[in-house]
Design a protein around this nucleic acid. Sequence first.
RNA 1: GGAGAGGUGGCCGAGUGGCUUAAGGCGGCGGUUUGCUAAACCGUUGUACGGUCAAAAGCUGUACCCAGGGUUCGAAUCCCUGCCUCUCCGCCA
Length: 426
Amino acid sequence: MLDLSFVRDNLELVKQKMRERGLADVLGDFEALDRERRKLLGEVESRRARRNKVSDEIASLKKRKQDASQLIAEMKPLSEEIQQLDEQAKACDERLREVLRIVPNVPHSSVPVGRGAEDNQEVRRWGEPRQFDFEPRAHWDLGPALGILDFERATKIAGARFAVYAQVGARLERALANFMLDLHTREHGYTEILPPFIVNSASLFGTGQLPKFQEDLFKLEGTDYWLIPTAEVPVTNLYRDEVLEAEKLPVKHCAWTACFRSEAGSYGKDTRGIIRQHQFQKVELVKFTVPETSYDELESLTRDAETILQRLELPYRVVALCTADLGFSSAKTYDLEVWLPAAREYKEISSCSNFEAFQARRANLRFRRSKAGKTEFLHTLNGSGLAIGRTWLAIIENYQQADGTVIVPPALRPYLDGLERITRQT
RNA sequence: GGAGAGGUGGCCGAGUGGCUUAAGGCGGCGGUUUGCUAAACCGUUGUACGGUCAAAAGCUGUACCCAGGGUUCGAAUCCCUGCCUCUCCGCCA
């Protein structure tokens, strides 16, 4: 959420930035609502001031056992007026807040201006896509052939966009989670969190999924509980309504969770394989920082995520999302895209974002520079480190051999009892 | 699921309709005393949204005692609804 007075004082800038996102009208009648709200506030507050004053007079008259009935009679219509004006002011305030709740973050000045995904800018590449002397197969062929991935039974027990991992396939998923968590906790200084996979709507509002993106989520019927679409939600909300001490920042957490997404509106997209599932696992990196370091922290968070791909020796590139492709809450985002040889393309495997104070304002995440100082909103960042299902399939595809077996990347072997090659499971 | 007890400032905790602009304490900040530290003593204390101002400071107004309604000239206080926490019982990995 943007700051009300920031929007008021920088209206043209905000409008321009929204146009760059491709959202010309998102501010609606902000100006008129803001003016109206301030007018009503003034009217209701001056009447309240009068009521408070006269109430004191009534009290002192009564204390002296004098008659206050005339003043009380005078106050009755004033109270009704206050109630009416207050209702108008509240309605106006609510409409203004509704506008603010659906206005996305202002893109950082370094974000490339663009009209769609084609305007995203490649920042760097790492690794050379392997040259195959045979036609590389997609994971949805290799996985079932190896007996480590089963779509048919997943469809039976749940439905489309689910998968069953079997035997060494299941173990590979678990190994990847441990490998990622160990790396980030031991070498990158993140402390591990295992949060609830179910959250309330206040948490989803805090990170920006609600109220606008309800249809992307699974809700538990008859409750205020939702399945998390990413660990970003519970972990960012850990310190909601708290004041952190500046010297403790940055706070860096990593968390492994399952993630659940309804994928409404993506029918027909990535329908084969495990690229786009209703349930997947992810290790998430989350940072809480002071405002002046958040862009440095975005660079290092992105590099922390890249390290996973480098250790697994998977070729990838880093892409800076343009204004049109930027997520709702984000001020700047780098996507990591891993090379998929069967499709011959780079595919998103991580998204690293700086939200500046956008989520902090929604979730009331504050810090204090000194014990006597004022509280300020901190900055939040997060990134996948990495999406485990997509890492799994990237390994299967990039390390496949002509005979259909898969070499295990050396960095992962300690997590699989030294296993060097995935062969057909029986 | 059943029974009960609660929710007050950064924290603890008083407060049964108007001398409460929320007592008192802790903590924080400033000061006095002190060779230093500690102690003692004195003062001070939150958030949000408005107004004033070129702006800041300052001044000023309103709101905030879990949330939302209601009663009343006036609500932390009385009434209703909801949420949350704790204790005990039941069920349960």
